[in-house]
Design a protein around this nucleic acid. Structure first.
Lengths: 127, 127
DNA sequence: CCGCTGTTTCGATCACTGTCTATATAGGGA
DNA sequence: TCCCTATATAGACAGTGATCGAAACAGCGG
């Protein structure tokens, strides 16, 4: 399936490695291309385990966490690694090895969009 | 799809049929339950065809559209129907038959959250 | 150099999902 | 009534994806 590291994406070119992107959905009809890009991002977040991993990292002080800190989500450790890889490939996380441990961070460009997206209830409901 | 395939409801009770929900992700660690709920919503939006269908409906005047108006997305008619059903099951769309035609609307409760979510760039980037 | 711990990759399995064709259902005319 | 259009369902198939145990890889300390 994959012989390469973090950089291989079928439908998308290397540069546009899925980012917070997102042309407003209600504002107009999506182009097939934009739909592809958004779908990749949503797909990365469409798994409960990945959502929990993401939220654990995002809510950690400094927006980063060691794998060892977050791997208690009810699946085996290799599976955790697998999901983290998916989130990385989708451009939602970045990772960095420091000594023995690997730290995952919420990708910088995602922070703004994401934090707004998840707090948007205040916007949506006028609270 | 079938009517019963290891139970229609995954982990959700009938009432909480996936709604705009969404506890802020960066604010704290998601509970397994919340993660399940969010995942269902994201999963519904994780397919390019569904995103295009949704955006076509959402951007139509009145937030509703006849199937006949939106079925040009490059797949067969039954496949369109299949995707619309999925969006309906996820609570993102509602449907209504009027005479020969079936009209799909963006689910009311979703409108606010969704429009904010997709316009949130203005929020996130301070524009 | 060796072993220990933390993390990723490999290979297999099994469930799920997107797509199709064929068929069924619903409503509106002639 | 019979037929035509619009939409939904059924069944089949291929591709994808979540998961696991085992094995490989990477630093660290003895």
């Amino acid at each position: 399936m994959s012989k390469f590291k973090g950089a291989e994406r079928p439908v998308l070119d290397a540069e546009e490695v899925v980012v917070p992107c997102c042309p407003p959905l209600t504002a107009g009809e999506l182009t097939p291309r934009d739909a592809e890009r958004m779908a990749v991002m949503f797909k990365a977040l469409s798994d409960p385990v990945r959502l929990r991993l993401f939220s654990k990292i995002a809510s950690h002080p400094g927006g980063e966490a060691c794998v060892c800190d977050i791997q208690d989500v009810g699946v085996s450790q290799p599976t955790v690694s697998h999901h983290l890889k998916k989130l990385r490939e989708a451009g939602l996380l970045t990772s960095e090895r420091r000594g023995t441990w690997v730290y995952y961070q919420v990708a910088p460009s995602v922070v703004a969009a994401m934090s707004a997206m998840l707090d948007l209830r205040s916007v949506a409901e006028g609270r």
